[in-house]
């Protein structure tokens, strides 16, 4: 199989799974087949989905380094964009189905509830990254692009905190996610410390 074929195949799988699951989710929710409270189900699925996809996209470069699977670099942007898409659905579903366009309540919750504030901050970062992922903008931004896209690590930590903070008592699953995030950051410790020391000088 040629390289182009493999990329095409990988992308097709990502599209089918990510978009397919999302479409199925909303269909089931709309026809009231998604458990007793479709709103909660949609919020959980899109939230955790965005997190999973972001983790996948951040697993790409360690895999490339370790196993020389260069080809994966070609799907990293797609994974990132799907992570943003899920996050967008998460936020919009909260607005449309949870608070049901009660804008006062929406704004109050975002400002007053720390775990929602944290989640919304992460979303703003993902939004900026998604917009600047357009090739033309990437070129225009030059070396600033990488600086901007390093914010993904902050977004990652904010999302982990948002998840951990949102649960009532069942902290084991979010703890595992925090651990995975720390491992992904640890794999980049050279890059991150370099950036840090450079800033200090």
């Amino acid at each position: 199989m040629s390289k182009a074929h493999t990329i095409f195949l990988l992308k097709t799988v990502i599209h089918l799974l990510s978009a397919g699951l999302l479409a199925n989710l909303y269909y089931q929710a709309i026809v009231d087949q998604l458990g007793a409270d479709p709103v909660e189900a949609v919020l959980h699925f899109t939230g955790i989905g965005a997190f999973n996809l972001l983790l996948l996209s951040l697993t790409v470069s360690p895999l490339v380094k370790c196993f020389k699977w260069q080809i994966l670099m070609k799907v990293r942007r797609l994974l990132g964009l799907y992570s943003f898409t899920y996050a967008l659905c998460h936020v919009l579903s909260f607005l449309a189905f949870e608070v049901q366009f009660n804008w006062t309540l929406f704004i109050d919750e975002v400002i007053e509830r720390p775990y929602i504030t944290v989640g919304m901050s992460a979303f703003v970062i993902l939004f900026a990254l998604a917009v600047t992922s357009i090739s033309r903008l990437k070129k225009q931004l030059g070396r600033h692009w990488q600086l901007l896209h390093n914010w993904v690590y902050l977004a990652l930590l904010l999302i982990a905190l948002h998840f951990y903070w949102s649960v009532k008592s069942e902290v084991i699953e979010p703890s595992i996610y925090v651990l995975i995030c720390l491992v992904l950051l640890w794999l980049r410790k050279k890059k991150l410390t370099r950036r840090f020391t450079r800033r200090v000088h």
Binding site: L25, V31, G35, A36, H44, F45, I48
Partner: peptide, 17 residues
């Protein structure tokens, strides 16, 4: 009142490990 059988596709499938 459409009493439908519940589908457990979705959040539950991915979430509960």
């Amino acid at each position: 009142t459409l009493l439908k059988k519940l589908g457990f596709i979705g959040a539950g499938t991915l979430l509960s490990t």
